[in-house]
Amino acid sequence: MSDTVMEVKGLTKQVSGKKRIVHDASFVMNKGEILGLLGPNGAGKTTTIRMIVGLINKTEGKVFINGADLDKEGLACKSDIGAIVENPSFYDYMSGYKNLQLYARMSKNPITKERMDEVVELVKLSHAIQDKVKKYSLGMKQRLGVAQAILHKPALLILDEPTNGLDPKGIRELRDYLRQLANQGISTLVSSHLLSEMQLMCDRVVIMEKGKIIDVSNISSLSENGNSDKLIVSIEVKKEHLQQTEQVIKMVDGVSIVKQENDHMFILEMNQNLVPTLNRKLVEAEVDVYGIESKKTSLEDKFLALTSEDNVQMKEGQ
């Protein structure tokens, strides 16, 4: 038996105006693994998830769930998945329990009353489960969302920003039962825009930015003294030389542009031994370089480098 629960290959979503909001995303999920999908708001996390669960059409790419092709065996794939997509929504004129009963009935394998109670207990909603969902707080809805997703014991759990609206205690509980599920062999894909959460919750993270997957990192190897020899390099050049710089960077194998910052900076990812080569090439191309700065990659650095621009924009917007 294969240990791969899900394989995503070249997933792409193009919306009107030829804009690609997810571009060539590929990753693999192993059995019992908690995989984080990390990226700032608007990165394309929800869009990726929507394609995997079949809410929107893929423009390109393939998804395999337990080896089955989503395009050919859609129903079988869906049976194996439990999901929360974006904000959890419920029939708020009914009780939490009645809502769960609806979803239980839609499962292909029957769900007993004991299983219902067990799940309600697990997400700590026993006290409020007979109340109308109308009265629930966002955090309680999140818990109910998790409950409906795990009710049928899916092999693959997909949670889109499940910590939204949860208090620290709730987040901790979520972490604990995801780990519990993982020990039972259930894999979880969990998206978030908060790195600190992902670091505590996940085994690995896929980092997404502007629709592209820019990194897949193993949390443990990226702890502070990680031995990765990849560097994040920021390079500052004269404004007028920006285009030449980009051309030069593209000529050097093994250097990838993480992003361009302001109008005179590039953030790059590369091996340490390529730094002198790049420097020499830039000099040859007569680019005025004001500074090259490099540091060891840690997930945090990388993520902050990625999101710093967004932070600045957000602050300006306020």
């Binding site: 669960v53 079949g54 809410l55 129903l75 079988a76 869906k78 049976s79 998945i81 999901a83 997509v85 974006e86 904000n87 929504s89 419920f90 029939y91 708020d92 979803y103 839609m106 499962s107 292909k108 409906q148």
Partner: peptide, 12 residues
């Protein structure tokens, strides 16, 4: 109100 997505991700 967003509940349709919960229906459409089920095996139907």
């Amino acid at each position: 109100n967003g509940t349709m997505k919960h229906l459409l991700i089920r095996p139907y």
